[in-house]
């Protein structure tokens, strides 16, 4: 299969490979896919509590070159976005940017799922944080 130059570039020079501390309340982690399907993506975002903007995004991917490129691109796009802007990233944007062929569209879908999973996890943590913060605050109030 011939890969687009952008896919090859992301494969050879993946952006933002790595991990963020998953217990950090400002970090959201998404882990999607399954080994037996041949694709697993872990995508993490770190949201700045002051600005509400994602200032760090990291990924690790088990999958084909297109899966690696899709998640690498996703981390690039996530940085500098608010949580709501992040949720607006569509898999078709990734398909277009990387010129993915039809058989590789599922890689972009997985990347979109990973973004949504990471944001969901972040929101869940924030909600829990808010609750525990509230319970901590109450006695002294």
């Amino acid at each position: 299969m011939a890969y687009s130059n952008k896919v090859i570039d992301h494969y050879e020079n993946p952006r933002n490979v790595g991990s963020l501390p998953k217990d950090d309340p400002h970090v959201g982690t998404g882990l999607v896919g399954a080994p037996e399907c041949g694709d697993v993506m872990k995508l993490q975002v770190k949201v700045n509590p002051q600005t509400g903007i994602i200032d760090e995004a990291k990924f690790k991917t088990f999958g084909c070159g297109s899966a690696i490129a899709s998640s690498s691109l996703a981390t690039e796009w996530l940085k500098g976005k608010t949580v709501d802007q992040a949720l607006a990233i569509k898999n078709t944007d990734i398909v277009n940017e990387l010129s993915l062929p039809p058989v590789k569209i599922h890689c972009s879908v997985l990347a979109e799922d990973a973004i949504k999973a990471a944001i969901t996890d972040y929101k869940k943590k924030q909600a829990a944080e808010g609750k525990s913060a509230a319970t901590q605050v109450q006695p002294s109030a």
């Binding site: 993946p14 490979v17 991990s19 080994p35 697993v40 690790k60 991917t61 088990f62 690696i68």
Partner: peptide, 16 residues
């Protein structure tokens, strides 16, 4: 492997 989430999980002792 350095960019594989499975390798990372396995190294953390998770049974995949």
């Amino acid at each position: 492997r350095e960019m594989s989430p499975l390798y990372e999980l396995a190294k953390e002792g998770v049974d995949l």
